[in-house]
Amino acid sequence: MTGNPSSELVIVSLYPRDMNIYGDRGNVLSLVRRARAHGFAPRIVEVNPGDPMPDRVDIVIGGGGQDSGQGRVADDLQHRADELRDLATSGVPMLMICGLFQLFGHRFVTQTGSELKGIGVLDVETRGGDERMIGNIVLHSDEFGEIIGYENHSGNTKLGPGSQPLGRVLQGSGNNPDDGTEGARTGNVIGSYLHGALLPKNPAISDFLIGTAAERRYGSFAPSAAMPESVERARASAKRRPR
């Protein structure tokens, strides 16, 4: 099914120039394909440091990057913090992966003790750790079922009372080596360490983003796309791989 221009969804790809590692741009491409399958006309707007946000925003997607990339976008993120917080408060669905997950929290303190201030959309704090958490990871989510991805980070993220975990770890490390949580959720904003990219293997999360955006913009959402068999095979293969 092709999208109807009258059912446009504007997807903001946040900082794709600096925050696009381990295949995170695949989340945007997968979301576009899934939105079209549901009958929408997705339009991608890339927002890099210094670029204005579009007048209309339906979904915001951000990825991970090296520490240098985080440093380059951190100041710009502070300049647009109020706008992003307002969008989040108004119910715009967002997915932030790894480095932007950390910066959408309160702060990220590196191993050397330097601090990058976050924007506080998610009630989390992150500190750089000595242990690298890397490998395939499987979560259980009451809302999304089994979530499959790939983690590669040394940040130790702790959740405050204002955020709930995206899921509970069945295989892997998650937010930190200790508490068995992965990711964070406040309202319609999701943060996660899962690369892979996350959305191609987890269409239930794509459908949440699309459905929430459609209901907010058009008042309703009628799903019309099944999970492709190729996705089922990819999920099964990822689960079988050792860490």
Results as ranks from 00 to 15, higher is better:
residue 103 L to Q: 12
residue 103 L to C: 11
residue 104 F to G: 03
residue 107 R to W: 09
residue 107 R to K: 10
residue 107 R to S: 14
residue 109 V to A: 13
residue 111 Q to D: 07
residue 113 G to D: 05
residue 113 G to F: 12
residue 114 S to F: 00
residue 115 E to G: 00
residue 117 K to M: 09
residue 117 K to S: 10
residue 120 G to H: 05
residue 120 G to T: 02
residue 122 L to K: 02
residue 127 R to E: 15
residue 127 R to G: 11
residue 128 G to M: 07
residue 133 M to E: 02
residue 133 M to F: 11
residue 134 I to Y: 11
residue 135 G to D: 08
residue 138 V to E: 10
residue 140 H to Y: 13
residue 141 S to P: 07
residue 142 D to K: 14
residue 142 D to V: 09
residue 143 E to R: 13
residue 143 E to Q: 13
residue 145 G to F: 09
residue 146 E to W: 03
residue 147 I to K: 01
residue 147 I to F: 11
residue 148 I to G: 03
residue 153 H to V: 14
residue 153 H to L: 13
residue 155 G to D: 02
residue 156 N to H: 11
residue 156 N to E: 09
residue 159 L to Q: 00
residue 163 S to Q: 06
residue 164 Q to D: 01
residue 164 Q to Y: 03
residue 166 L to V: 04
residue 167 G to A: 05
residue 168 R to H: 14
residue 169 V to W: 04
residue 170 L to P: 00
residue 171 Q to L: 14
residue 171 Q to F: 12
residue 172 G to W: 13
residue 174 G to V: 07
residue 176 N to E: 03
residue 179 D to R: 02
residue 179 D to I: 04
residue 180 G to H: 11
residue 180 G to Q: 08
residue 182 E to P: 08
residue 183 G to N: 06
residue 184 A to W: 00
residue 184 A to L: 00
residue 185 R to V: 14
residue 188 N to Q: 15
residue 189 V to W: 01
residue 191 G to S: 08
residue 191 G to C: 12
residue 191 G to P: 09
residue 192 S to H: 03
residue 193 Y to T: 05
residue 195 H to R: 08
residue 197 A to T: 08
residue 197 A to V: 10
residue 198 L to V: 06
residue 198 L to H: 01
residue 200 P to K: 07
residue 201 K to M: 07
residue 201 K to N: 04
residue 204 A to F: 06
residue 204 A to N: 09
residue 205 I to Q: 04
residue 206 S to W: 04
residue 206 S to Q: 14
residue 206 S to E: 15
residue 207 D to E: 14
residue 208 F to V: 02
residue 210 I to E: 05
residue 211 G to V: 09
residue 213 A to K: 08
residue 215 E to K: 12
residue 215 E to T: 11
residue 216 R to P: 01
residue 216 R to I: 11
residue 219 G to R: 06
residue 220 S to N: 13
residue 221 F to L: 11
residue 221 F to Y: 12
residue 222 A to F: 09
residue 223 P to Q: 08
residue 223 P to M: 10
residue 223 P to H: 07
residue 223 P to F: 05
residue 223 P to V: 08
residue 223 P to G: 09
residue 226 A to P: 03
residue 227 M to G: 00
residue 228 P to C: 11
residue 229 E to F: 14
residue 232 E to C: 09
residue 233 R to K: 11
residue 234 A to T: 05
residue 236 A to Y: 05
residue 237 S to T: 10
residue 240 R to L: 15
residue 242 P to D: 15
